[in-house]
Amino acid sequence: MTRSESRVQVQGLHHVTIVGSTRQSAIDFWEGALGMPFVFEQPNLGNPAENHLYFDPGDGRLLTVFTDEGRTDAGRDAPREPGTVEHLAFTVSRATFQLAPARLRARGIEVLERDRGFMDSIYFRDPNGMKVELACYKFQTPEGWRDADVLRRAFELRVARGDANITAEHLADAIEDLLRR
């Protein structure tokens, strides 16, 4: 690889920032409904008319929300077009996953549950119409490996077998392969 072909190597997701409506709406949803502890706030240094709220989604990284007391909740689905985020997905335990639909519905939040083959998903919308997902893998990653390692190997097995999507069999065989290494 020549110098002109070198690339920047990212090492993980640092944070995600979304545009919200009011401070209280953001706190009620991200901390109240989803249990993400409120960490701190300060003015949006790029736009002092907005406030910048920081929440911990559980892994020590941050989800941040720009708020403005002059805005109201959008009350519509967020746009889905090139250049926009389709949804944000958060990892939850199997126990939380099983309880989440009832807890969200109790707050008046509509949910859609889906089996994705290698994981289960619950979809719903934040107060501004952005789609949010709670995801729970159907496998336990072996010590010393990462979720992506299991999924990469399961994908290779799926393709080699000509299957349409990753199934429990691909996951089990992928884990077995990784443990033999």
Rank of each mutant, 00 (worst) to 15 (best):
T2V: 08
R3F: 04
S4W: 02
S4E: 13
S4C: 01
S6K: 06
Q9R: 05
V10L: 13
Q11L: 11
G12D: 09
G12C: 08
L13M: 13
L13D: 06
H14Q: 08
S21R: 05
S21N: 07
R23W: 14
I27F: 02
D28P: 00
A33Q: 06
G35D: 02
M36Y: 10
M36F: 15
M36G: 06
Q42M: 11
N44F: 11
N44L: 03
L45D: 09
N47G: 05
A49E: 15
Y54M: 04
Y54F: 15
Y54L: 05
D56P: 11
G58L: 07
L62E: 10
T64V: 04
T64G: 02
T67D: 02
D68Y: 11
E69Q: 11
E69D: 09
G70E: 15
G70A: 15
R71P: 02
D73Q: 12
A74Y: 14
G75D: 06
R76A: 14
R80E: 14
H87C: 08
A89L: 09
T91H: 13
S93W: 07
R94K: 10
A95S: 14
A95R: 14
L99R: 14
A106S: 15
R107Y: 03
G108K: 01
G108I: 07
G108V: 08
E110W: 04
L112E: 14
R114A: 10
R114M: 08
D115S: 07
R116N: 10
G117I: 09
M119K: 14
I122C: 07
R125I: 03
D126R: 01
N128E: 08
N128S: 09
M130W: 12
K131V: 15
E133L: 12
A135L: 12
Y137E: 13
K138F: 07
G144F: 12
R146D: 10
D147C: 08
D147M: 11
D147Y: 10
L151D: 00
R152K: 03
A154F: 09
F155P: 00
E156F: 11
E156W: 11
R158W: 04
A164F: 07
A164G: 00
N165M: 11
N165A: 14
N165H: 13
D173M: 06
L178P: 02
R180E: 12
